[in-house]
Simulated assay, not measured.
Amino acid sequence: MTTNVSELVDGWLRLWNGELDRAAGLLTPDFRVHAALMGGGDGSALSGPEGLAGWIAQTRAAFTSLTFAVEVGPIAQDDLLAVRWTATGTYGGGFPGATAEPGTPIAFTGTDTLRIAGDRLAEYWVNSDIHVLFAQLEVS
């Protein structure tokens, strides 16, 4: 693999930490998401840099000071890259079904698996401890 894994991970982390303008240079035009979505979808509706940037913006809108950090990794093999991350922040309101008060601190973890094509990220699988986040937000 000739791609600089450190640069990809740094760009990925900055993207999730709100630097949404990084999406176009970091992701392939046909970037694909594989994720269980709140509305029941599988992530196939989220494609390309714009689709992911929009999803990230929507996620970040319900939280103030949401910060993602790499906990384990990166682990790279062939054209795949994996990182375990932690997310911390403060609930700002507006999360569907949440009854927690705005200002509630949140923390949860997850693992991202990414496929690299050339010098960009082409595909994304996520497994997160969303049930932990739901418990903190008192989602009913």
Rank of each mutant, 00 (worst) to 15 (best):
T2C: 00
T3C: 14
N4F: 03
S6D: 15
V9K: 08
D10A: 13
D10Y: 00
G11V: 08
W12Y: 11
L13T: 14
L13Y: 00
L15F: 00
G18V: 04
E19I: 01
E19L: 01
E19D: 13
A23N: 05
A24W: 00
G25C: 09
L26Y: 02
T28L: 13
R32Y: 08
V33F: 14
V33G: 02
H34D: 13
A36L: 15
M38R: 09
G39K: 02
G40F: 13
G41T: 06
D42V: 12
D42P: 03
S44I: 09
A45L: 14
A45Y: 04
L46H: 09
L46V: 15
G48A: 08
P49A: 12
L52N: 07
G54D: 08
G54V: 05
W55G: 04
I56C: 09
I56V: 15
I56D: 03
A57E: 10
A57M: 01
A57R: 06
Q58K: 04
T59K: 01
T59A: 04
A61E: 07
A62N: 11
F63I: 02
T64K: 10
A69H: 10
A69I: 05
V70E: 15
V70F: 08
G73S: 11
G73I: 11
P74E: 11
P74T: 07
A76S: 14
A76Q: 14
Q77W: 11
D78W: 08
D78M: 11
D79W: 02
L81C: 11
R84L: 07
T88G: 10
T88K: 13
G89N: 02
G89Q: 04
G89K: 06
T90S: 11
Y91Q: 04
G92T: 05
G92N: 08
G93N: 06
G94Y: 05
G97W: 01
T99F: 04
T99E: 12
A100I: 08
P102K: 07
P102E: 06
G103E: 13
P105T: 01
P105D: 00
I106H: 06
F108T: 03
T109H: 10
G110H: 09
D112E: 13
D112L: 09
I116L: 14
I116F: 05
A117D: 15
G118P: 06
G118C: 14
G118A: 13
G118Q: 11
G118W: 09
L121A: 13
L121G: 12
A122M: 09
A122C: 14
E123N: 11
E123L: 14
Y124L: 15
Y124V: 05
Y124S: 05
W125Y: 13
I130T: 07
V132Y: 00
F134C: 03
A135P: 00
L137M: 06
E138Q: 14
